[in-house]
């Protein structure tokens, strides 16, 4: 029943190459997924600005268009304003906890250095160990990096807060029950004459195509994220054969093989969206011309657009808050490890100090 516990052990160079390869893969996936999500945001933004699909659903002029009702339900189902308010309230505490761990870690280094310097001043050359200041440089550099990261996080918190402040009113409205939502949206003259008109049908068809393109993106994202591969064998082989690893060449070759087809599908998807959005904008112009807008209709449309945007903002803010919460929690784990490193080294220095003091007293 022998299992080789050193099976996964590889030469240092292979380990480093694997780490870099992993970074490259993460970057590529991040870029691909990023462009997919960007395309969806763009698409949602364009539709909201055109008041689609609400405008072609809204033929009574006073009931809540179906798509807006669906958006309302979606937001309510995800916890509405309360859930994001709670997460926003928690952020400063999470930040503070992280700050405290970092401050505490650097403080114990500072305190030990102070004592070490006092003893060096007292005993001069006889206190012949490396000064704490020199020894702690790497840890302090790490600490400075952490401060940097926390500063960036604080800025991110601000962005989220501002997004929330900008949109919370409309999000609150979107979360209201249907009857309240209905009364809050200005009425307009019904556009019944447009029902069944050619341009409405064309728009409907185009919107359905766009939906399919969006669904393709969701599937693509899942597939892209599911790709796994292991460069270990390739790197070990290269090292054995050449005595060196051309990591960049090997990794980019493998990434092309694994992700090439996906990259093309993403490009194709983005182009399809570009095309259909252009078509939708043209159709919408026709539609708007037919609609005979007046002040009432324009007011109604403005509110519907804002409600659609509020849904998109809610999704974005929720995502930001999940990211922020995870960030602070992950950082806490990392900072606790850092704190351990600091207390370990300080403990060793204290022990060494006691021994040195004993020697000096004896001599």
């Amino acid at each position: 029943k022998f299992t080789d516990i050193f099976e996964k052990m590889v030469p240092m160079l292979v380990q480093q190459s694997l780490s870099i390869a992993s970074s490259r893969k993460a970057d590529l996936v991040s870029r691909l997924v990023g462009s997919l999500r960007e395309a969806t945001n763009l698409c949602n933004g364009v539709l909201a600005s055109l008041n689609l699909p609400a405008a072609i659903e809204d033929l009574s002029g006073d009931s809540v268009p179906q798509s807006i009702l669906e958006k309302s339900r979606a937001v309510i189902q995800q916890g509405g304003l309360n859930s994001i308010e709670q997460l926003i309230k928690d952020l400063p505490e999470l930040l503070q906890r992280n700050r405290e761990i970092l401050d505490e870690s650097l403080k114990i280094l500072n305190d030990e250095e102070t004592t070490d310097n006092e003893l060096r001043a007292k005993f001069n050359q006889r206190w012949n160990r490396t000064p704490s200041g020199d020894l702690y440089k790497p840890l302090r550099a790490e600490g400075a990096n952490f401060r940097n990261i926390l500063d960036k996080a604080v800025q991110a918190d601000q962005v989220v807060k501002e997004r929330y402040n900008t949109h919370c009113e409309m999000i609150a409205l979107l979360c209201k029950p249907e009857s309240e939502l209905c009364s809050a949206i200005p009425s307009a003259n019904p556009a019944k004459t447009l029902q069944g008109s050619e341009v409405v049908n064309v728009l409907k068809a185009q919107l359905m195509q766009l939906d399919e393109i969006k669904r393709d993106r969701e599937a693509l994202e899942v597939e892209v994220k599911a790709v796994t591969f292991d460069m270990t064998t390739k790197f070990l082989t290269a090292l054995a054969q050449d005595g060196a690893i051309n990591e960049e060449a090997l990794t980019t070759g493998e990434l092309d093989t694994r992700y090439g087809a996906y990259t093309q599908r993403v490009q194709k998807n983005l182009r399809s969206q570009e095309d259909i959005l252009a078509q939708i904008q043209t159709s919408h112009q026709e539609f708007a011309a037919l609609k005979q807008s007046n002040a009432d209709a324009n007011n109604r449309e403005e509110v519907l657009k804002k409600l659609a945007s509020a849904h998109d903002s809610y999704i974005e803010i929720s995502s930001n808050l999940r990211e922020g919460t995870k960030f602070y929690n992950d950082l806490t784990e990392i900072l606790l490890k850092f704190q351990n490193k600091c207390s370990d080294i300080v403990f060793a220095r204290k022990t060494e100090r006691e021994e040195l003091l004993k020697e000096l007293q004896q001599s």
């Binding site: 780490s19 970074s23 993460a26 990261i149 960036k152 996080a153 991110a156 962005v159 989220v160 930001n320 990211e323 922020g324 960030f327 992950d330 950082l331 990392i334």
Partner: peptide, 16 residues
């Protein structure tokens, strides 16, 4: 993404 990446920091560095 809005927040800084912690990926680099998660990798355990070899302690000398």
């Amino acid at each position: 993404s809005l927040y800084p990446s912690l990926e680099d920091l998660k990798v355990d560095k070899v302690m000398r």
